[in-house]
């Protein structure tokens, strides 16, 4: 009898791990990534060398950073549109205000983070303490930032210092892509944040604000911090975009708006909040960028790229939804 019981329990745990595995959006999108990468390798040929890997990482990182930040806000149940404005503003500031040399580069990095943090704090204050709708407040801050970007630099131009453009985009010590290293640092940082009371609170607030407050979670502070953290990520995304493109444009951030939400959806984060995570979104961003490259190397006109991006978003959301419903269905 007892043997039977314990057997039953172990069956349940096995079943549960399968369910967790299926319900994990990051995993689903990672598998899609590997499949697409195989196709890309076949179409492109040399993709495993340091240089192609480095290029791929550089192209991926800005969107991945933005998506990571947007996800933190999304997990609390909010939408953050300010990403486009922040990236543009940071980009034009880096391209016009920052001189050459390591000290200036450090100042540029700090400036990018500060701009992102400031906008994020405004968003957070409006949404958490002002009780405004997140879409409306962040749309407003996005517009303000885009306007400021035009004031700083009214047409594409400017020049990103060589020090930033080289050091942030070349392999570190000639062995490992800098962009890849930064992505890893962000992933590690997120794993740390997730293991704090604040990290747990983000998920709690996103799932059910009332229940969270009845459980003692500081709902307003959590929201405020989430928008602030998101802003920092957009600032970093703007910095990396400047390093990769080496030039400034007041509309540099515009394409990021929709692609960021696409990356978040592909990565398995619920737009209703409470489920998912930045790691899935970063892989989702990588998938979108890889798709662009794969289509380019397969000779598909760039006009079609966007269509494929939309299609793969539907595919990822479908696959994610199906596997999540299988995961949930097993338990019912």
């Amino acid at each position: 009898m007892s043997a039977f019981v314990s057997r039953k329990v172990s069956d349940q745990t096995a079943d549960r791990s399968i369910r967790l595995w299926l319900g994990n959006g990051a995993l689903v999108v990672s598998i899609l990534y590997v499949l697409l990468f195989a196709f890309y390798a076949a179409a492109q040929g040399d993709v495993f060398g340091l240089q192609p890997m480095n290029d791929l990482a550089n192209d991926t990182l800005p969107l991945a950073l933005a998506a990571a930040g947007g996800t933190v806000v999304m997990l609390t149940g909010g939408f953050d549109l300010s990403v486009a404005g922040v990236i543009s503003l940071v980009n034009v500031c880096i391209a016009t205000q920052i001189g050459d040399g390591p000290l200036n580069a450090l100042w540029g990095l700090l400036l990018a983070i500060l701009i992102g943090l400031a906008v994020g704090m405004v968003n957070g204050a409006l949404v958490a303490f002002g009780k405004l709708q997140s879409i409306a407040s962040t749309l407003a801050t996005m517009i303000v930032c885009s306007g400021l970007a035009i004031v700083v630099l009214d047409a594409p131009g400017g020049n990103v210092s060589d020090f930033i453009a080289d050091n942030a985009t070349d392999p570190i010590l000639g062995v490992f892509p800098a962009a890849g290293a930064i992505a890893l640092v962000i992933v590690l940082l997120w794993l740390v944040v997730r293991s704090t009371a604040f990290g747990v609170a983000i998920y709690a607030v996103g799932a059910d604000e009332t229940a969270a407050s009845l459980a003692g979670v500081p709902v307003l502070r959590t929201k405020f911090l989430a928008y602030s953290l998101g802003g920092i990520c957009y600032g970093l995304a703007g910095f990396m975009l400047s390093a990769v493109t080496a030039t400034g444009s007041p509309s540099a951030g515009t394409p990021f708006l929709l692609l960021m939400f696409a990356a978040i959806a592909i990565g398995g984060t619920s737009f209703a909040g409470g489920y998912g995570g930045p790691i899935g979104s970063m892989v989702g961003a990588a998938l979108l960028v890889l798709l662009q490259k794969a289509l380019f190397s397969a000779g598909v006109s760039s006009f079609y790229t966007v269509i494929f991006q939309g299609a793969i978003m539907i595919l990822a959301v479908l696959v994610g939804g199906i596997s999540a419903s299988i995961a949930a269905g097993r338990s019912r």
Partner: peptide, 22 residues
């Protein structure tokens, strides 16, 4: 213990029991 239950559906039992300070 609230009538309307103050548990978070997306967290584990352990996480819920130790809210808000794990």
């Amino acid at each position: 213990a609230f009538q309307e239950l103050s548990l978070l559906p997306n967290l584990t039992v352990a996480a819920n029991l130790t809210l808000p300070h794990p």
